[in-house]
Design a protein around this nucleic acid. Structure first.
Lengths: 198, 198
DNA sequence: ACCTGAACACCGTTCAAGT
DNA sequence: ACCTGAACACCGTTCAAGT
């Protein structure tokens, strides 16, 4: 699979490449400290470049995030593939869901960006998010085949669920996020699904 | 129970009272259109008052939100009380959870403010959020006594769960939010809770 | 081919001066 | 007692001018 987007291009002027790397490093620091809605001006300042240089390399905030997260998101997708070999289909799903939640909470505010990007095809993060969703879908389908997950749950449900729970954890405490994840996964069981009778 | 906070004060100069009402009306319009993170300057403009006048009446964005939502949040708390008389403890909880989720999605971005306010005691919205949480707690406890909800679920879990699901619905579609709510509620069942065995 | 920094339009918040 | 509007500090984004 060919990676999309303007990665650190093969041929780039030496100073350009240096600025590119500096911007990425500064973004990692600033995002870690202030979340992904941090000031871009601050990032440029810390990278020691002019404001416009940042826009030259990363036309949008999402583009910057994509460059920063690409490897980790690819790894998460790869993990999903690997877990298809796990002896327990259900445990594989649970393990992956926890990993996905951990990734999603890398930076404050990231979960919102990831949730937005799954439906916004123009986002530079869209492709990576799609890949993650598809990775989760395979684990979900396998668990459904094994009979441990209700049939009406979709990949979109799983994606939304993980993000919702990660968001809650971010807003309160990581422990609260963990609790909700447990409850949510239990809610996927095909047990007594809909007993809307009085 | 005495309402907290500086409500539309009993005695207020006529022009002050008029500005107060105008600001509230403008805020309702602007929040509905742009979400609760909308420009305060825009609200002041639309209310036809100077910038500083808004701050005179509402020192923070949360104070403005509180004044705007007070009645609805009180109603939600009252609904919880009323539902204690519902014949089915479990159905009462589900009905209320849906009502809470609907309230939470009144304005875009509101869910984040409500989630923040439950742990931020300095927020003008804190008291109202606490009251809502306690309302939910009573319904939760009753359902637990009836044996339809797992014993280890807490009021904080319920509050976080409703908000997380509402957030997901806001970020994607209301239908997706509904689906997650259903799954989450099923996850509260005391059925096969923790089968972490391979 | 890339970088710079000023320019523009927009904020939240404060506060002296008015009435 | 309340209102006004300027002031300050901070943004995101664009773009002519440089090298």
């Amino acid at each position: 699979m060919s990676t999309t987007g303007p990665a650190p291009q093969r041929r780039m002027r030496a100073d350009a490449r240096r600025n590119y790397e500096r911007l990425l490093a500064a973004a990692a620091t600033v995002f870690a400290e202030h979340g992904v809605d941090a000031s871009l001006e601050d990032i440029a300042r810390r990278a020691g470049v002019a404001n416009g240089t940042l826009y030259g390399h990363f036309p949008t905030r999402q583009a910057l995030l994509e460059a920063l997260l690409r490897d980790r998101m690819d790894a998460l997708t790869a993990t999903a593939r690997d877990l298809l070999d796990h002896p327990s289909a259900h445990e594989a799903l649970v393990i992956w869901a926890r990993a996905a939640m951990a990734h999603t909470t890398t930076y404050r505010g990231l979960v919102t960006a990831l949730m937005r990007s799954i439906k916004d095809e123009s986002s530079e993060l869209h492709a990576a998010c799609r890949a993650v969703l598809v990775g989760g879908e395979q684990l979900l389908t396998r668990a459904q085949a094994a009979g441990t997950v209700r049939e009406d749950a979709t990949a979109a449900d799983l994606y939304a669920m993980i993000n919702a729970v990660a968001w809650a954890g971010e807003q309160t405490t990581p422990a609260q996020g963990e609790r909700l994840l447990t409850f949510s996964i239990d809610g996927l069981h095909p047990s007594r699904s809909r007993e809307h009778s009085s």
